[in-house]
Design a protein around this nucleic acid. Structure first.
Length: 238
DNA sequence: ACATTAATTATGT
DNA sequence: ACATAATTAATGT
């Protein structure tokens, strides 16, 4: 009854891992090599914290494989999912927004593989590597814009439209094509969806049940497949 | 138009 | 068998 924490280091990292990722795409091969040599790689089980809200931001991260949930802890102690990050994106980049502690908790939504670097390297990367800063600020901007959109949605749209929008975003960013539609590529509960849309899991459950009967979605426990995206778009614009 | 409460059922280890 | 997830109806604001 003893389990072995997967401490082991992964197979030797190859430059091609980072070659096509936005923050590194403009770099020379040998530059990527030195960046990789400074990185630590680690595999995380599903559902574990990569870093915690408020903790000193001593490292920054690149998600190589898997999905992570960005989660905020409310004063009452429960978690609220803020957004999901797919493989190929940086996270925990407190330095990029001028902070020295993490603004949120990052939990793995699936088993994940993550590279990380000591935070002190951030400034040197920004200074030394062409395109590094512009590309990262670009993704920071995107996330910020997405969050702003959600704030606007909360204020203006009805619940049905909000969860329709949330579903559409999820399949756009983290969707995987399957035989009968697009499936959200990680386990997601109605509770999660309700947190993303500021409603209750009951309302989400009812909406999904209704949509399922109309053939717009298919869902099993923790799995949601959108079978008719167009119809969802219409709902989101009603 | 939605949340809350509560009871019931399904599903995964 | 147990905990977690999902459904459903009834009631409340």
């Amino acid at each position: 009854m003893n389990e072995i924490p997967p401490r082991r280091t992964l197979p030797r990292l190859d430059e091609s891992l980072l070659k096509h990722l936005p923050p590194f795409s403009k770099l020379e091969r040998r530059e990527i090599r030195t960046i990789l040599d400074q990185a630590t790689s680690r595999r995380y089980e599903e559902g574990v914290a990569i870093f915690d809200e408020g903790a000193p931001a001593d490292r920054f991260f690149m998600l190589l494989d898997g999905y992570v949930r960005v989660v905020r802890i409310t004063p009452t102690g429960d978690q609220v999912t803020a957004l999901h990050i797919p493989a190929g994106q940086l996270l925990g980049i407190a330095k990029a927004i001028g902070r020295d502690s993490y603004p949120a908790t990052a939990m793995t939504a699936t088993e994940s593989i993550v590279l990380s670097w000591p935070a002190r390297l951030w400034d040197t990367y920004v200074a030394d590597y062409e395109g590094f800063s512009t590309e990262t600020y670009n993704t920071v901007g995107n996330r910020l814009g997405e969050m702003n959109n959600r704030v606007v949605e909360m204020a203006t749209q009805q619940v049905e439209q909000r969860v329709a929008n949330a579903l559409l975003r999820l399949i756009n960013q983290t969707g995987r094509k399957v035989s009968d539609g697009i499936e959200i590529d990680f386990p997601i509960t109605r509770q999660d969806l309700s947190e993303l849309t500021a409603t209750t899991l009951h309302t989400v459950s009812r909406l999904l049940s209704g949509w399922e009967k109309r053939g717009l979605v298919q869902s099993k426990r923790k799995r949601i497949t959108v079978t008719n995206p167009h119809a969802l778009v219409e709902i989101s614009q009603a």
